[in-house]
Nucleic acid binder design. Structure first.
Lengths: 123, 123, 123, 123
DNA sequence: GTGGTCTAGACCACG
DNA sequence: GTGGTCTAGACCACC
């Protein structure tokens, strides 16, 4: 379910966060589903448990999951969180687009790119 | 000409590189224009000369400028480098777009965003 | 494993880069082998850690190794990089040969030199 | 007669030295031919006269030219100097060849390269 | 004056 | 512990 790419420059905990986020926003993980325990996931991925802990803490802070002491971690209800995430991602996209424009990429080139991406079948 | 944002998470030297890159790709800096000297720019931005040095070295490695000991650093001829840069930036954009799609952003939303960016007057 | 020649005119970081490159292209260092840490190698060679850091950064940029914050630096998979390196080295050799020809060195003299080198036992 | 390449990383004075050396070893400049004066060449190449002076001094030190105060600089007799130069260049070539061998370039590959160079018509 | 290398020591993020 | 960024100050080669 979770794959770590050691060639990826991003820190491991961030890769884990991202992965769970998309799984949740995708609907692949439904509300109240239990996440693997910190320790079991640590063993499965053979990485430090602190790293998993950090990822889960951040996910909780961001509102994607909730934790119950002694029980485990669970997926939160989808309360407008998806909207926030969408807004944020769109903002990032805008930054990228501005950069494209700055170095002389034209609108049609971008549009073509967009169409190409949205034509493909979902992964 | 160069502005450093200390709130930006990216390293200083990278901000400088990016800034010069866009200035060169923009055409704001024409070929063979001399860049400010390492030390003078360091003083102007009140940062260490080594940091500027690093930025210039990378810019040279990337082919945007050339440096001559005892003379200074200069903007390189625009030999197809712009095209490479465009390709790379578009590739990055594709990655971003895929992520957008994954979390449920629709094509029209993206298109609207694109149009908005390209309507604005150039900076 | 690494030796620095202070009589060599080339910068230290470049000597280190070259040494690791040949070790990797040789096969002496296999993929995913961990390199000595920046600090430990610095102590071993009694040079500054920044110099090692610089060498490792360039090796990563060139695609010979990959580095992960908090984990270490490792040898990369040999993805056709060896071929590129061969092409580049041969190109340099051609430049050298042209120079030989220009100052009146004859083809047999060069051939003799080549044979002599390739007769020797590998280091 | 002399061309300076500002994209070349070697210092200007070295480029000038090299150029004169090959012209002399070539036979393009015969013994006792007068070289352009320091000042005239400096103006012609629009570079600092000190740089030309340095090149001429080195050429004199190496035995390629001789200077007479108030008269100018002249090409020296070809007294075994060519031989020394050849030996040195061949030594450099050997270094390069060793490197080729180290990274796995085979003897036939090198030989082919050599033949190719020596087939070409002189420049 | 210019670019380039190196040192010593600091701080940060990550695991 | 690891890699990575930054500073301050030194020295060199070149013009």
């Amino acid at each position: 379910m979770i794959i770590i790419d050691y060639h990826d420059k991003r820190p491991i905990y961030e890769q884990i966060i991202d992965r769970f986020q998309t799984l949740i926003l995708n609907g692949a993980l439904e509300p109240d589903t239990q996440l693997p325990s910190v320790r079991s996931l640590a063993i499965e991925l053979s990485i430090n448990a602190n790293t998993i802990q950090r990822a889960y803490s951040e996910l909780e802070r961001k509102g994607f999951i909730y934790s119950i002491k002694g029980r485990g971690s669970f997926v939160r209800q989808d309360n407008s969180l998806a909207e926030k995430q969408k807004a944020k991602t769109l903002a990032e996209l805008c930054g990228q687009l501005k950069q494209c424009k700055e170095i002389g990429i034209t609108q049609p080139e971008v549009i073509q790119c967009v169409n190409q991406i949205f034509m493909e079948v979902s992964a």
